[in-house]
Design a protein around this nucleic acid. Structure first.
Length: 583
RNA sequence: GCUGGUGUGGCUCAGUCGGUAGAGCAGCUGAUUCGUAAUCAGCAGGUCGACGGUUCGAAUCCGCCCACCAGCUCCA
């Protein structure tokens, strides 16, 4: 109920904003303006684009409207009158909306002063109800979310019941932005990008590369324990392969193609997915039901020619490496194998500490967009029902989403939000009922009959770049000990202590700890500050008295000064702490 | 791809009306040997994102690319 009130308030705020915009720019055309989870927006068609500089003006006008305390009145009109009204007002988008309303649906309007909007409501009763609001940004957005339509101007804002709540939210936003991996990850030198290499092609610097290496080893070892067979397959193939898989017809604009597809001769393409490559192992000889389930994994680098506006830090890139895998199994094995994939994914999420940050999405096909998918409606419905049954049986709390499936089958997507609240898929488990047939992957069942196996496409920890990005945001750069690219830094107090510092460093490294030394001629407080900025788990101060006694003075990023400790004792404790999580 | 914004040494920024670049921090060298951030002195580092154009003269004006940021669309 509380939530509903807030949405109503925000919806009213969006109308107040639209009224303000109309007053300042009478020629704008109104599109839609709903409340959203974080506030509200309104889409306008304007002759010239709005910019950030327009916002204060609009805010000022909104304040006036709120002060005027206009009454908000709801009324309904019959279809013809509604159309005539919007016709007279010159609102083409509203006309389109009215025309699309189903017959018999009430057509309601909300009026506040000179401003009237087609709207289902509900709304507050007076404009003065909007007490604490803020306009945040102005961006483009396609009419009805379709890129073929005109791009409108969208203003985002937020509103709360009190000033305090608004200020708290804005402060929270600012705090969240400080954890942005795209800023922090560059500052802390996890990665960088460079113009001459190109968009969506990040350079993983030593720290980023190290974290990914740790994760990769962890994943591969765990998958080995769970009966996976590791493959290493080529990064490119002739187009013929992608014709069989369907990628050539359904994913071509997403591929990097080498050679002219219209000319004679061979054309190659970098792989956007691993499936058709990994299937070749299955196809290498005849298979029987005794070979199943066959679990294949690969640390697989993929290339996708994303549209230029899509790239974002390490979250959306053109080359990435994924903990890929495919399971071929019989229909009877499907549920157990699916359960196994989910268990592995959950284990991974828990290990890196992201398990409480995710949500589950059952991604289905879109029956109104059949070109995007292969297979018949009956097949899709059947496999989706099967998947839903499995999800329900596993008691997964999921939401359903149409049009989010892969072109060959439905998915369970494990979703995560970045610091801006934008949702991305971290992990996906897909049931594929079609590619086996396309590749003529068969097995001989107990009765000697040839059958097509189900194929599960799955990832255990997602793609490493994206996972790294979300870990940076989750921990604000302060990686847990087992993932920290630099676990310990040795800080000699004076030049005199460098030799002992080097000795300490060697012992740390010999014990398998990732350690560095700061031997600059700077004051000790300064070196500590540096290490703190980099969020290092441990700092070891070594001075004259530590050198004499074989000790180190330990500081942790969290607990502050831990006092002097025998070096061997520290090492034993740190090594234990640095161990990877166990199943 | 679309809408808007941004692009000056590693980082943060200054650069007024066009007169061919400055600061702090970081770096390096020397001195200092210091116990919880910033001692002293010096040095080095930039074809002002790229390429065209206007101009006697462009970091400043125009065009076109490229990259980065937010959003839309698309997606792991």
């Amino acid at each position: 109920m509380e939530q509903d009130n807030l949405r109503t308030l925000r919806h009213t705020a969006s109308h107040v904003m639209a009224q303000a915009v109309k007053r300042i720019y009478p020629d704008v055309r109104l599109a839609i303006g709903p409340a959203i989870d974080t506030g509200f927006y309104y889409d306008f068609d304007t002759a010239t684009p709005l910019t950030q500089e327009d916002l204060p003006k609009i805010e000022a006008e909104m304040k006036k409207i709120i002060k005027e305390n206009l009454q908000i009145k709801r009324y309904e009109l019959p279809r013809e009158e509604a159309l005539a009204f919007m016709e007279k007002r010159g609102e083409p988008y509203k006309l389109e909306l009215i025309r699309d309303l189903p017959e018999g649906e009430p057509i309601s309007f909300y009026e506040q002063g000179e401003f009237t909007d087609l709207c289902a409501g509900p709304h507050m009763r007076y404009t003065s109800a909007v007490k604490a609001f803020k306009l945040l940004s102005v961006t483009g957005a396609y009419w009805r979310g379709n890129e073929k339509n005109k791009m409108l101007q969208r203003i985002y804002g937020t509103a709360f019941k009190t000033r305090e709540e608004l200020d708290a939210y804005l402060a929270e936003l600012e705090e969240a932005k400080k954890r942005d991996h795209n800023k922090l990850g560059r500052e802390l030198e996890y990665f960088t990008t460079v113009d001459v290499i190109g968009q969506g092609l990040p350079i993983l610097m030593p720290k980023g590369a190290r974290v990914i290496q740790i994760l990769q080893r962890f994943v591969e070892d765990e998958e080995q324990r769970r009966g996976y067979l590791l493959t290493k397959t080529p990064y490119m193939a002739k187009r013929d392969l992608y014709k069989i898989s369907g990628h050539w017809d359904h994913y071509r604009e997403g591929m990097f193609i080498m050679g002219d597809p219209d000319a004679e001769g061979e054309v190659f393409a970098l792989r956007p997915m691993t499936c058709p490559f990994q299937f070749q192992y299955y196809l290498a000889r005849t298979r029987s039901y005794r070979d199943l389930p066959m679990r294949l994994n690969e640390t697989s680098t993929l290339f996708r020619n994303e549209a230029s506006g899509e790239m974002h830090g390490l979250i959306r890139v053109r080359q990435f490496t994924i903990s890929e895998g495919h399971i071929a199994c019989t229909p009877e094995q499907l549920e157990d194998e699916f359960r196994g994939c989910l268990d592995l994914a959950k284990f991974m999420l828990k290990a890196v500490g992201l398990d409480d940050s995710v949500s589950y999405r059952f991604s289905k096909w879109d029956e109104n967009n059949k070109e995007k998918y292969i297979g018949s409606a009956e097949q899709w419905e059947a496999v989706q029902d099967r998947m839903r049954a499995i999800l329900d049986d596993l008691k997964i709390d999921y939401t359903e989403a149409s049009g989010e499936a892969a072109f060959y089958g439905p998915k369970l997507d494990i979703q995560i939000r970045n610091v801006y609240g934008k949702e991305d898929t971290l992990i996906t488990i897909q049931i594929d009922f079609q590619l086996a047939k396309r590749f003529e992957m068969v097995y001989t069942d107990v009765n000697g009959e040839k059958k097509y196996p189900y194929v599960i496409h799955r990832t255990s920890i997602g793609c490493y770049e994206r996972t790294l990005a979300l870990l940076i945001e989750k921990y604000a750069g302060a990686m847990p000990m087992w993932l920290a690219p630099e676990q310990v830094r040795v800080l000699p107090i004076t030049e005199r202590n460098r030799e002992y510092g080097a000795e300490v460093l060697n012992k740390l490294r010999a014990a398998g700890l990732r350690a560095e030394i700061d031997s600059r001629n700077e004051k000790i407080g300064y070196k500590i500050r540096e290490a703190q900025i980099q969020k290092l788990p441990y700092m070891l101060l070594v001075g004259d008295k530590e050198a004499e006694a074989g000790m180190v003075s330990v500081r942790s990023r969290s607990g502050g000064d831990l006092g002097p400790k025998a070096l061997d004792e520290f090492i034993a404790q740190a090594v234990a702490e640095a161990a990877a999580p166990k199943a």
